[in-house]
Amino acid sequence: MLIFSVFKTLTDQQVTVELKNDLSITGVLKSVDQFLNIRLDNIKVLDEARHPHMMAVKNCFIRGSVVRYVQLPSEHVDTQLLEDATRRESLAAVKR
């Protein structure tokens, strides 16, 4: 839930999603859901020469399970807030 919230705060920001098949896609984060499925707009594939079929694609939906990394804009991530929220969530998880 915590990480879902983080992604929600990053909507309309530029991110780079790296998939488990090594494809990297940069685009504007349009939406995210609880499974961390991701919708990207204005996409650009990092290595277009290797993936020419992606050149015509302007936006996409990425299933959360195929994501390896997402590079985030650090200026829009409050690390102190993240750490506090993570501690709070972990304590709540123990109480369950």
């Binding site: 961390l36 991530v77 690390t79 993240l82 750490e83 993570t86 998880a93």
Partner: peptide, 21 residues
């Protein structure tokens, strides 16, 4: 996939999803 990371840990959850800088 024979990958390693070092970085500063800022967030995690029960799946071990991580946010690092």
């Amino acid at each position: 996939g024979d990958r390693e990371l070092t970085g500063i840990l800022h967030a995690y959850d029960g799946h071990m999803n991580l946010i690092m800088s």
